[in-house]
């Protein structure tokens, strides 16, 4: 459903992505992990042509993005959602306005926009925050709005660049839960870039490890279903037991 064929990205002399090929299956949660500067974000941004590769092809939903006109590309991007580490909401728009703009861009029928926005906000549990501005929300809530915005146009793929790296552990777990739910209940293919092992381990079906602009390895993994209990107090006890010896007071 998403294919990269020998994509290369250069910044002047520096090669950030070196002839990378990969294939992501429909309905998968695909993780990309690696050290800072490995080229993960660049690779992800190549997937919706936010970065235009110097060489290679990008294929999403059977369409070759790299051979499209500007207009076709804009159209194709409406079925590729994206969320970011710093949320990138419009601070001067309310939660509602932030989501509805995605529908305006997609020429979604005017009289159905409101219902669609409410539906998406309900999905992320924020319908009551509709008239608030991003500055009035917590980090986790902002990311939920960004997710609602990305989902509004019913994308087939959701690209996530460090979606939880600006969040605390509890909120990280919530957001990962939302992503997992999107994948399960809506069948959306998800690509997650992260430098945090916990994030990748807890939700990804396939994981690619990047290093110096290249794919080091790709493995598939099954979550053992013990992760997301982070909000339960017992989680903290278990986490502590992993690394330190406990003595109950």
């Amino acid at each position: 459903m998403l294919k990269l064929n020998r994509v290369t990205k250069n910044y002047a002399e520096f090669q950030a992505v070196k002839s990378v090929s990969l294939k992501i299956n429909q309905g998968e949660i695909y993780g990309i992990i690696g050290a800072s500067g490995a080229g993960k974000s660049t690779l992800l941004r190549i997937m919706n042509l936010l970065e235009v590769p110097d060489e290679g092809e990008v294929e999403v939903n059977g369409q070759t993005l790299t051979s499209m006109s500007g207009k076709q590309l804009r159209q194709a991007r409406k079925s590729i959602g994206m969320i970011f580490q710093h949320f990138n909401l419009v601070a001067n728009k309310t939660v509602y306005e932030n989501v509805v703009v995605a529908l305006e861009l997609a020429d979604f029928p005017k009289n159905e926009r409101r219902n669609r926005v409410l539906e998406c906000l309900q999905f992320v549990g924020l319908e009551s925050m509709m008239d608030k501005y991003p500055a009035q929300l917590s980090g986790g809530q902002k990311q939920r709005v960004a997710i609602a915005r990305a989902l509004a146009t019913n994308p087939q793929v959701l690209l996530c660049d460090e979606p939880t790296s600006a969040l605390d552990p509890g909120t990280t777990a919530d957001i990962l839960g939302v992503l997992e739910n999107i994948n399960k209940s809506l069948g959306v293919t998800i690509v997650v870039v992260s430098h945090e092992m916990e994030v990748i381990k807890s939700i990804c079906h396939t994981v690619t490890i990047m290093s110096d602009g290249e794919i080091y390895d790709t493995v598939s993994c099954k979550p053992k279903g013990m992760q997301r209990k982070e909000n339960h107090p017992q989680y903290f006890v278990e986490e502590l037991t992993k690394d330190v010896e406990l003595d109950h007071a």
Partner: peptide, 24 residues
Amino acid sequence: GVIEAAISMGASVKDVVFKFIYVE
């Protein structure tokens, strides 16, 4: 980042200017 988000949603230059940049 706001401009990038707009582009990723398929906004044209005109849309980016009027619906995002001027608003922000």
